[in-house]
Design a binder for these strands. Structure first.
Lengths: 318, 318
DNA sequence: CTGTTAGCGCATTCAT
DNA sequence: ATGAATGCGCTAACAG
């Protein structure tokens, strides 16, 4: 049997309350006694019961993380960052994958609440309307999302990608998205459009509409995710265009496979650490009784790799 | 304030114990009363306190999941499967990423224990030696791992890949691994070797040793993961070889990007659902007082896609 | 500075 | 079939 607070109190002939005070450091205990208590606690391999503590304090020390879909390469990075930020703040992380419709997402939220989460980090599915919960919630999505807590500057990221291609002399671009419904994708593409210089032109291809990537005459392609960049890259190869010699390709989110391929993928990455940290900080603040902090937006950064190069000689183009 | 068991008891003029019996269905309560209690509980939006229940029963209803590295494309699939199997069995899932050395893995295990997990699903890092824990643990790794609970038949998976290429007339293969230390990779390659027919020959390239994939004269490449298959695919393209016309490529684990590329990747997949289900079932059994069930091994399946085709005409080869 | 008392919300005896 | 009493292990008040 695990030793309880009382056991170590008996061992030293003090009261359980004093042991609690000594161990948590909250009440006042003489330094000498405190050290003796800590020493014997260690010796007896005392582990406080999280359930008892949770019942007493009303805090489980666990937060819930709701993700749209772990099998989408974008989200594990966020999960990892949230887990590490939470661990640093002393929280455990309960995951819930809301795979499927927004209904499962609601179920997931309820389940986490039932399981005693102190707060929730939510990466919402497209078109979610946040229901009222009596738990603190931090939302990670985009600046365009009402109620958002922390997000990347997706428009700025789009602009970064266009600026990079502009610097390399590209004039004719293709923007590649999957779904118009995704706020993240729309924001990224809006940022791209806004950053076009007067000499540049761009078309947008939404994969949900169908359409042939290889048919483009653009010399630069910016996809809203590494996954679609990969599709573009391999489709181009297949049709005999070389990357980056003939066409440059940029992705988003710096997924592991972008470094596994040849040429490695130039990509625009989120500062997932910072975002996760802000989300956790927001929850911690709310749990501390403070009002929810303002939304925080973090810049994205472009990592140049082998998939982008100067535009080919215009002679061939025109 | 949330209603407690007592509140709903007062409402109906019965005792809290009866309400508890009615709601959990364990004690004996007259059907009529039971239904009335359930109805008012619903009406009052009663939610049992997980912390109180946990303290009383000694069970938190939460299991821990320890993964080596969420950013490695292999693991999110497992996480998703475990989460879904756990949810089906009424468990929540606390994640811990043991990113870094085996020391962090030990920390992760301790943290989950401290946080009140009832049991643990562990996907161990290479070379882990499982420490004794006083929690039930289910290990997902390979049949070669001592103490393993559920795993894929990685050798069988390797054999499947070789058989597929043999059927297509390939005689000269290249096996691509990353690290000899990985039991999973070693098992897969061992299975490949064992399945070679007398007419076939194969070389093995470990990426940790360096070496040039494009230098091979093999007409079929089997990588121990989709990620390395992707490296092979793009490297071959780069050096002017066509996939699958000149060289066929097979990966492992059926990651999302394998379907995003052109040609789509033929791959050997694990039955993650079954494995996760077995792991959860093992924990549930142990929590129920039963001994840990025997190890269970699940077959892998090959999904044929565009990256494999009949071997090119031998004339060009010899 | 330390000990005593009380109770968090629930599930389980054991009476009735 | 139902109710009263008890305690899971801990911490927050207050008393000494």
């Amino acid at each position: 049997m695990q030793p309880r607070l009382q056991d170590i109190a008996n061992e030293l002939g003090v009261s359980a309350a004093t042991v609690s005070n000594a161990l948590t450091g909250r009440g006042r205990v003489s330094p000498a006694l405190r050290d003796r208590i800590r020493a014997t606690a260690l010796a007896m391999e005392y582990r406080p019961s999280p359930q008892a503590r949770a019942l007493r304090t009303g805090r489980s020390g666990v937060i819930g993380l709701v993700l749209p879909d772990l099998s989408n390469p974008l989200f594990p990075a966020i999960a990892q960052a949230v887990e590490s930020a939470a661990a640093a703040a002393g929280f455990g992380v309960l995951i819930a994958d809301s795979r499927g419709d927004t209904g499962t997402q609601t179920d997931a939220l309820r389940r986490l609440e039932r399981q005693g989460a102190d707060g929730i980090v939510l990466v919402p599915r497209r078109g979610t309307r946040l229901m009222a919960m009596d738990l603190p919630v931090a939302v990670i999505d985009t600046a365009s999302t009402p109620g958002n807590t922390a997000a990347s500057d997706h428009r700025g990221g789009g602009a970064l990608a266009v600026a990079h291609l502009a610097d390399l002399g590209h004039r004719h671009l293709l923007f590649l998205g999957e779904s118009r419904q995704s706020l993240v994708q729309s924001d990224r593409i809006a940022g791209m459009r806004a950053a076009l210089t007067p000499q540049m032109q761009a078309e947008t291809l939404w994969l949900e509409d169908g359409g042939d990537i290889a048919a483009t005459r653009a010399t630069g392609i910016i996809a809203t995710s590494d996954l679609h960049a990969l599709t573009a890259l391999t489709t181009l190869h297949r049709s005999g265009r070389r990357v980056p010699d003939d066409v440059s390709v940029i992705g988003f989110d710096d997924h592991a496979f972008g470094r596994a391929i040849t040429p490695a993928l130039t990509t625009v990455a989120q500062d997932t650490q910072a975002i996760a940290g802000a989300a956790i900080a927001s929850l911690a603040a709310q749990l501390g009784g403070a009002p929810a902090p303002h939304e925080r937006i973090f810049p994205m950064t472009l990592t140049r790799r082998g998939s982008t190069a100067p535009a080919p000689n215009p002679n061939t183009e025109t």
